[in-house]
């Protein structure tokens, strides 16, 4: 073993001497919590994922009303509590300021963008991220990109991912699953969002929460589809309640 390690070290040294020190390197050990993250307001989900990663893409998949928008807005509120500015790309023109405020979003620290096209949205997101203008951005939603030409979108996403990697901004992409099938999300052709996403979460509504005969919220189940924390396939249960303000369990 010792000689094998010696030979490996010698080979690495030889390559580095010939091609430079960056030609071949051993990976530096990285602590699991080295990536800065934003809390989701749901401790069970934070325990599973460590929070939503900054400098990367988080994809939230779910049927409409499964809680993806609520989760995104709660994360925005958390980021704003840490003095971040938020950018909300509202492609579907469905942003509800009243609901956002009830989720704790500070509207004076939020910029709402309603671009004319999906490509323009990706470009605006890239420009804002590269300029260090936002700490969190929400892309609502991927389904609104379906009518756009595929090539430029794929390239736009690649550029956005590259800009994110050099920033401290967390990007949240909302992907509605109109038929509930997580295996066939509504992506435009060539739009490799699952590839670029650092974290992918699938939300499903489990049950309504009732108090006597009044609905006071609902329970949603989150399945981790992709994570660098090694928690793929694991699940967390979220309770979202409404009583004037929208609360996640633990907030």
């Amino acid at each position: 073993m010792g000689s094998k390690k010696q030979r490996l070290d010698q080979t690495v040294s030889a390559i580095q001497a010939r091609w430079g020190s960056r030609a071949l390197r051993k990976p530096a050990p990285q602590a699991p919590d080295a990536i800065p993250r934003i809390s989701t307001c749901f401790p069970s989900l934070d325990a599973l994922t460590g929070g939503l990663p900054r400098g990367g893409i988080t994809e939230l998949l779910g049927a409409p009303t499964a809680g993806a928008t609520t989760l995104a807005l709660k994360a925005v509120a958390q980021a704003q509590a840490g003095d971040d500015t938020a950018l909300y790309l509202d492609l579907g023109r469905t942003f509800d300021p009243d609901y956002a405020a009830r989720c704790g979003v500070q509207l004076d620290h939020l910029l709402l963008a309603r671009p004319h096209s999906g490509l323009e949205a990706l470009e605006a997101a890239r420009a804002v991220v590269a300029g260090g203008g936002a700490g969190v951005l929400v892309f609502d939603s991927v389904a609104d990109l379906l009518t756009e030409p595929a090539g430029p979108l794929a390239s736009g996403l690649r550029q956005l991912a590259a800009a994110l990697a050099r920033s401290s901004c967390a990007a949240l992409f909302l992907t509605p699953l109109y038929f509930g099938d997580v295996n066939s999300p509504p992506y435009p052709p060539g739009f490799a969002l699952p590839h670029y996403a650092t974290l992918r979460l699938h939300l499903e509504k489990e049950a309504w929460l009732q108090s006597r005969h009044d609905v006071r919220g609902y329970k949603a189940q989150v399945t981790v589809l992709k994570s660098r924390q090694g928690s793929e396939g694991r699940r967390a249960s979220l309770a979202i309640t409404f009583d004037g303000v929208v609360r996640g369990n633990g907030t």
């Binding site: 003095d83 500015t85 910029l111 420009a127 300029g131 260090g132 203008g133 920033s167 401290s168």
Partner: peptide
Amino acid sequence: LFAHGDGQMERLQQVL
């Protein structure tokens, strides 16, 4: 390189 919090709004205005 470590843009976070302070001054984000000003940078955002510039990008806008």
